[in-house]
Write a protein that binds this DNA or RNA. Structure first.
Length: 502
RNA sequence: GGGACGGUAGCUCAGUCGGUAGAGCAUCUGCCUUUUAAGCAGGGGGUCCCGGGUUCAAGCCCCGGCCGUCCCA
């Protein structure tokens, strides 16, 4: 209990009341006073706005076929004894036209009391106004939901980015482009599933809560499992479970769901993100390259109707296959000189420093090279590029190359300077796998991204024999960013993480 | 974690040199039966993000904090 006079009374209908909300509360009371339930009920047999407008017949303008539509009032123009309102439903917009002589004094007066943002159902004949807009005449109407808060400005929509993320529903109501991005995301996810289903891959669900957060190097979210009295981790990857399924005889499996990594947020990272992960027995890295290339081109073509995406003034992505395939070493030589791997360590260091990179003599040659790859080369890979044959220490879960055991048989697909998909020839030698896990722990040096626990259950599974396999990951949020030309991952995630207010 | 920028009416934004806080839309009142960012006339609406400080006087200057955006690590 508080005596603070700034605190609204316990029976305040709304905490942050202002003149507009007060007016709407008055209107709400007026509806109730007339015996109308301002929050409606089931409203069946409505027609979507687009279909309703299609009923208008150019050859017989007098017909005025009757339709019932429902939606949110997004424009409301009172003109004395008539009102024009625009309703938005799931399919688009339709204008309705209410007239005093049609509705009668009382119903018309009540109609005028509707507010911008209210949800109504309307029945009436479809006609075309003298300015050419197909419109439904209001014969009868039903209030379906009273909005107690005004919508953002009708023309600008909602601009404030923070509010767009925190109150995404307002963004979706007011900004068509935002709604279009999320509809396209839905299309993309459906296309990915349908592509994989057509090729016989089985969609599975594996644990989100894991005892060992394996399958990637990332800091996990921790929680506690009361019933089992043990700490648990939100998964950072489903990999080790999907591989158990390979052992179990599921030969082509995938999972398309959330991973959680307890790391920073920025334009390209949301700690909770959506990933496709897929494994195919008897395949390898090349099988995976071909698959992901076909998948991306098919999805791009089906959702965008084109293999080109214009990102901005300077950049247009071209997904026409085949994507470029280039070995890590060749890429480094291409950027840093063909003699890169032959010159002295001091010379390499000098060339790296010339690029303003923070490298020092204490770093190994491999580390210096990789610093250049990550800080410079990766960002320059704009058009889809498969980088292959990466240094082995980077990837503990992949097979080494047949002809060079310092390299692993993997690809990383880079697009617009973003790593969008990794793919491996999966390591299925349990003894080698144990060795690599141990190496990782031994060299972790307190790095919180490396699990200090070896997943013994996983190794046991491998010891039973996992078929040779190809595997791949595909960042769905990033794929959506590329296909919608979105600049921030927050523009493709409906409810991105933000710091809680106050 | 560091830097730059931003937070003013429900929304979008101005706010000069530190001197009575503004516009458009929205809202309210009146007029208006085919409008299209409808129109005309009039009115109301502010914890200038929060907390300190400087000053006769702070939206503005200084310090600290909160939230966000971008860049960097």
């Amino acid at each position: 209990m508080s005596n603070d006079t700034n605190t609204p009374p316990d029976d305040a209908p709304i905490v942050d009341i202002n003149d507009q909300i007060a007016q709407r509360l008055d209107n709400l009371a007026a509806w109730r006073g007339e015996g109308t339930d301002p929050y409606g009920a089931i409203f069946p047999d409505r027609t979507l706005s687009v279909d309703a407008k299609a009923l208008y017949n150019e050859d017989d303008p007098e017909a005025e076929p009757s339709v019932t539509v429902a939606g949110r009032i997004v424009l409301f123009r009172v003109m004395g004894k008539a009102v024009f309102a625009q309703l938005r439903d799931g399919a688009g917009l339709i204008q309705v036209y209410a007239q005093k002589n049609v509705l009668g004094d009382e119903l018309f007066a009540a109609f005028k009391r509707l507010d911008f943002g209210d949800i109504v159902g309307v029945t009436g004949g479809v006609f075309k106004t003298r300015t050419g807009e197909i419109t439904a005449k209001v014969q009868s109407y039903t209030l379906l939901s009273k909005a107690l808060r005004p919508l953002p400005a009708k023309h600008e929509g909602l601009v404030d980015v923070e509010q767009r993320y925190r109150q995404r529903y307002l963004d979706l109501i007011g900004n068509d482009e935002a709604a279009a991005v999320f509809r396209k995301r839905i299309d993309i996810v459906r296309e990915v599933r349908s592509f994989l289903e057509d090729r016989g891959y089985l969609e599975v669900e594996t644990p989100m809560l894991q005892v060992v957060a394996g399958g990637a190097a990332a800091r996990p979210f921790e929680t506690y499992y009361n019933a089992l009295s043990c700490p648990m981790f939100m998964r950072i990857a489903p990999e080790l479970y999907l591989k158990r399924l390979l052992v179990g005889g599921f030969e082509k499996v995938f999972e398309l769901n959330r991973n959680f990594r307890n790391e920073g947020l920025d334009r390209r990272h949301n700690p909770e993100f959506t990933m496709l992960e897929l494994y195919e027995a008897y395949g390898d890295c090349r099988t995976m390259m071909e698959l992901v290339e076909a998948l991306i081109t098919t999805v791009a073509q089906n959702v965008n109707g084109s293999l080109q995406v214009r990102l901005n003034e300077e950049t247009t992505l071209d997904f026409t296959p085949p994507f470029r395939r280039v070995a890590y070493r060749d890429l480094v030589c291409e950027r840093m000189g063909n003699d890169w791997y032959d010159v002295s360590g001091a010379e390499r260091l000098g060339r790296a420093q010339a690029l303003d990179l923070e490298v020092d003599a204490g770093m190994s040659d491999v580390a210096v090279t990789h610093e250049i790859y990550e800080k410079v080369i990766e960002h320059e890979l704009i058009q889809p590029t498969f980088v292959t044959r990466l240094p082995r220490h980077l990837v503990p879960l992949a097979k080494t190359c047949d002809d060079d055991d310092t390299l692993v048989d993997v690809y990383e697909l880079e697009i617009n300077g973003l790593e969008i998909s990794p793919g491996y020839s999966e390591l299925n030698d349990p003894v080698e796998q144990r060795k690599r896990f141990q190496e990782q722990i031994d060299t972790a040096d307190g790095n919180p991204e490396v699990s200090k626990i070896i997943d013994e259950d996983f190794l046991t599974a491998l010891e039973h024999g996992m078929p040779p396999a190809g595997g791949l990951g595909l960042g769905i949020d990033r794929l959506v960013m590329l296909l919608t030309a979105a600049e921030s991952i927050r523009d493709v995630i409906l409810f991105p993480h933000l710091r809680p207010k106050k």
